[in-house]
Design a binder for these strands. Sequence first.
DNA 1: TTGTATGCGTTATCAA
DNA 2: TTGATAACGCATACAA
Lengths: 338, 338
Amino acid sequence: MKITSEEIAKLAHVSRSTVSRVINNYSNVPEDTRRKVMEVIQRYEYEPHSSARVLAGKANKIIVLCISDYNDGSRRWRGVESPFFMGLIAELVSAANLHGYMISVSIVSSSGDYGKLENMFLNREVTAGIFIGFEFDFQMDTINQFIEKGFSMVVIDPGEDMKRADNVTGIYSEDEQAGYIASSYLLGQGHRRVAHLAGDNRLSSRHRLAGYLRAMREAGIQEDALWIRHGNFESELSYQLAFELLSKREAATAIFASNDAMAVSAVRAARDLHLRVPEDIAVVGCDYTPFYETVGYHLTTIKISVRTLANLAVKAALGLEPRRSLYCKAEFKPGITA
Amino acid sequence: MKITSEEIAKLAHVSRSTVSRVINNYSNVPEDTRRKVMEVIQRYEYEPHSSARVLAGKANKIIVLCISDYNDGSRRWRGVESPFFMGLIAELVSAANLHGYMISVSIVSSSGDYGKLENMFLNREVTAGIFIGFEFDFQMDTINQFIEKGFSMVVIDPGEDMKRADNVTGIYSEDEQAGYIASSYLLGQGHRRVAHLAGDNRLSSRHRLAGYLRAMREAGIQEDALWIRHGNFESELSYQLAFELLSKREAATAIFASNDAMAVSAVRAARDLHLRVPEDIAVVGCDYTPFYETVGYHLTTIKISVRTLANLAVKAALGLEPRRSLYCKAEFKPGITA
DNA sequence: TTGTATGCGTTATCAA
DNA sequence: TTGATAACGCATACAA
């Protein structure tokens, strides 16, 4: 069926052990022998049987991507359906490929899923795990238990109470910075009445708001002159909030929205009110979701590079990145809406 | 570390073989023994070591999703970046989960990747493969070679020259039907001047066009009264085509666009020309991309259920679906644009 | 520097 | 119906 190390050994006139040593780059094999063996390996396109390797104690070259998916009646978050996830997974797969690893995807909702996951780690079926969508307390509990067991983990956007340990890396976005950059830009353009469409209660949202507040404070804008509307990261509500905001007599002249979906909705509301963008009302989004370019214009936004994030995540998962807290950079991305 | 079948055997006062028989649901074990063993298994949450199983001859419960990614200078298709893929993978992961399988993602671009893939099949690391984005001749060659080797495969939207065999299932969309439904609907609404914004040269696009032509023919519309514009599946060009189409003096009163991105662009062009949708111009899309609902209205479109497609793909991959050619249903989905 | 022997946890074959 | 035993393909401790 497939050539084994045994046969390679025979063909190269050495023992299986030597073949193994060559494959695993051991130092105690002379250059001559190594070359001789490598030649046979390449000629026969030999690749070790991964299950056999794992069984014999090596780790499998697979990173498992765990996506939380809960539904407790009131709250429901299908990670697999979020556009953010969909972009991320593509980048993770590419990043892992670069290091010769594959990404396996696992949806975890029930506690039984946690058990399966634990098994995969214990069986060395996977080298590491990247967790996404785990931020609520009841989820962080399990995450923390995993951390204590010493599994190599990367948690993207974790809850605040995540345990610190050598085997876990938390990845955050520079959200406060993003909010600050966006708001500062608008202030720098001469705007005074800058509104903020805030997202939901998640950390990223709260931090973006904090950045907005800092920028406003530094610009000497009075507390009571702030325009903040709390919504969520979706379009429908954002449209309503923006519409209502812009319908006022003394309306804002600029809006910083907590993500691109909200920004696009704000632009739509503005147009429906016959306001020109950016002349009458400037809009800056956040995240940079390339998909929104299909709406027909380039949104001015703050780009948080999913590619960078994915690369950092993979490196951290493989232990190639010493930092245990990573902050994904936020950069201004020019467009035509501000 | 982890409990093994050996220890389970001891605790249940049987031999490893019997534990194995219970785990694998062999018939030759009496109900009493089975219950006794199962009890221990459940109490200790025993799960067989997957690598050991694979090494001993069983197949791993993993389906590999192979996404083509080529870049030959002139043509470039990064499957991982297409929105269609991103939606599909989410559904595939869910569908596979239902059967207790995991999805591993592999990007295949170089010929070395094919070698790795072959190894995975040979090593029983994966049970089956689902291939997406392989449609050009030079790719189908390799696909056909894989088919000949007997690997269990599902190819989504394959090229026409795919080999027929018992171990492969081709999945197609009812594209001709989709085009027919959309166009018939518009004709049924009384429209006579129905235009079609065609996609690129891909099969799906060509079949949708064919459906449009059939509907028009059946309605007795003259050949020379057809309005067809050839574009691609993206928004920029579609906007231009629609704009130019609708600027004419005797313009079309309805448009069937080959996908939702194009339809949304057409709506935008109409609005920029101060035409009311659907009063002045009706628009029907195709595919149903939920993401587009964030633009603020529900597009009238033809829904091709990615979920159904994913479920069929997984079933076929696992040999639970006898048909070797599957057609993913196209359904009318009402909206406000037609 | 190299080879031999053993173990990894299962499934499958065979004999009882 | 059951249990002993031999694969499966590799890594590694130990011996040479």
